[in-house]
Design a protein around this nucleic acid. Structure first.
Lengths: 334, 334
DNA sequence: CGAGGGGATGAATACGTATACACTCAGACA
DNA sequence: TGTCTGAGTGTATACGTATTCATCCCCTCG
């Protein structure tokens, strides 16, 4: 009761050597069918499970993937995490989750070298963070998910933020909007950057100029979107549409609009980015550019497994399309 | 480059034995100050980090806690997870996260015996799940967080759901409501049960009867709350207040009210439970019973550490008060 | 000046598993 | 009948660290 049984204990019980028990455990074909059956019976009776640590130390594989993430409470991140958990567990892999907001960089650096995971998934790569370079330097297989870094020699799977943003801009222009607000992140990642640039490009291509006052740089949270909307919609001649780079901000914008009495979509259209589940809630009913979370995660983990299997393979950067999901926060004006 | 350096490699470099290196690593006082300094310098130069697996195998401690959770995308769960991550990382502990929705019970059973964590935090205990009994049977220190199980000989830290619900009921009655809807979970956990019973008790104590038609048993998601609200509010004489057992359902109810054109709080008051961050969003502005997430997590992890240190200590069940957070979804009628 | 003692260190071992290697024993083939 | 083969099994070892035990040296004290 005090000490869990070891393979050696069970070997004694089954009248074989520890090596044979191990062979049974690893499905090694070089073991007599009869012996295998007997050993399996003993294992089952004892409800034996191999010590994962000892196994990992011997094989060098932990069957565990390290996931780095920020702001789990943010709807999109939660969905991403949920999906990662689903896919990993379907492959019999465990997940160690680190919130790089909480963990000091120094602690993270330690973790990277400890060899307690087979690979890393980074979901919050930013230019100013050293996380990705540390991860790569550690020699542990690493894939960037959702947030990429241009020109980095590392596997990456991201949504086509530029294209998604472009389509959103095009959509607004096509529906006659010319006075458009852009609530954008001051963040230093290329995800939000592309969601900004793609949108601007669409408007530029259509000959629509963005008034300087229509661009509101904000921080991440809901309240920032709220404040931005209040600012934009309190003007004498407010914009007829507002696009922003995350759903969370869009929710804040919708709330801000509510606060100043602006009706959506009658007075102002609102478009977000991520197409989280909440975007479909009646409270928001938000038109949003969809991130193909499922594909991103599935592809990224597939890539990670391939890199674990062959660390020398060439790196891949995969970009997946982001279609626009249209809802009630934008309505046909005609 | 290929193989990370071991303590033995560094011992050679520093001209000492591996044992001495190990002593330095573990802050063993029985090592000469001069020697320690030299070894530390070598360790630093090599950017050496001890192999966590080998260390864990030797010491029996992994500095890792296993967390079982469901529906990470649910706002309250995300906040709980975030808080758990914060507290664990502040103590230098890692977190392995399992979503027991994704993982088949059999896989979970395997994990429990593998000794790859020092302890478990269960946040989704339900009567019909065997998870808690399996965890206890595994002999690994375990604490139930947020969801408890009556009479189970296991450390538990939960909000006082009964009291919170009672106060919510009392609050509605005190403000003159007599026709009150109760949207309740069919779930088999004592969390939602207490949130139901406490509310009923408050009404009963005040002599307010709940019409049979006013009780709507539902499933977990937002859409269920939506449907329940539509059902309740479409009646000829709809209730003047609706209480429900989670914020997620309350959000659905608010959306449902919007859908049928009922104004909150003018036509109907809405009260939720959890007081998630989103409850404060303008879109919802929800009066809600607060769960003391921070205290629950902090206390629970403290309890877990104590149990890890001393597995034989008596079990504790800690119940923390749940105050009512009043917002715009309920307004003073007078 | 010798016995004793304590501070530092090295050698050896154990944690529990996977696996290379050695060995046994049939059966096959000459 | 003796050698060879190969399936099946056991023995021994390694993974990298923490820790017990033995050792050594220097100092103190009688």
């Amino acid at each position: 009761m005090s000490r869990p049984p070891t393979s050696r204990d069970l070997a004694r019980l089954a009248g074989v050597s520890q090596a044979t028990v191990s062979r049974v455990l690893t499905n090694n074909p070089k073991v007599n069918a009869e012996t295998r059956a007997r050993v399996l019976q003993v294992l089952k009776d004892a409800n034996y499970k191999p010590n994962a640590l000892a196994r990992a130390m011997k094989t060098g594989r932990t069957d565990t993937i390290g996931v780095f993430m920020t702001r789990v409470t943010s709807p999109f991140h939660a969905e991403l995490l949920d999906e990662i958990g689903r896919v990993l567990s379907s492959m019999g892999q465990h997940m160690i989750l680190w919130n790089i907001e909480h963990d000091p960089e120094e602690a993270v650096a330690e973790v990277l070298q400890q060899r307690l995971v087979d690979g890393f998934l980074l979901t919050s790569a930013t230019y100013d963070s050293k996380l990705h370079s540390m991860a790569l330097a550690s020699g542990t297989p690493t894939v960037l998910l959702h947030r990429g870094i241009d020109g980095l020699d590392c596997d990456q799977v991201v949504g086509d933020n530029y294209q998604g943003a472009y389509d959103a801009g095009r959509y607004l222009v096509d529906h006659g909007h010319t006075d458009i607000g852009l609530v954008t992140l001051t963040h230093t990642g290329n995800t939000s950057r592309d969601r900004d640039l793609g949108f601007r490009a669409a408007l530029a291509d259509a000959g629509v100029k963005i008034k300087p006052g229509n661009v509101v740089p904000v921080d991440v949270p809901h309240s920032a979107g709220h404040a931005a909307a209040v600012k934009l919609l309190s003007r004498k001649k407010p914009p007829t549409a507002i696009y922003t780079v995350t759903d969370l901000l869009a929710f804040g914008i919708l709330d801000g609009a509510r606060a100043v009495g602006a009706r959506v979509p009658d007075d102002v259209w609102v478009v977000g980015f991520d197409n989280t589940e909440m975007a479909a809630w009646e409270a928001f009913d938000l038109t949003s550019v969809e991130q193909p979370v499922h594909s991103i995660v599935e592809t990224g983990i597939q890539l990670l497994r391939e890199r674990i299997a062959d660390p020398d393979r060439p790196t891949e950067v995969i970009t997946l399309p982001c279609p626009l999901a249209i809802r009630g926060s934008t309505a046909n004006r005609h």
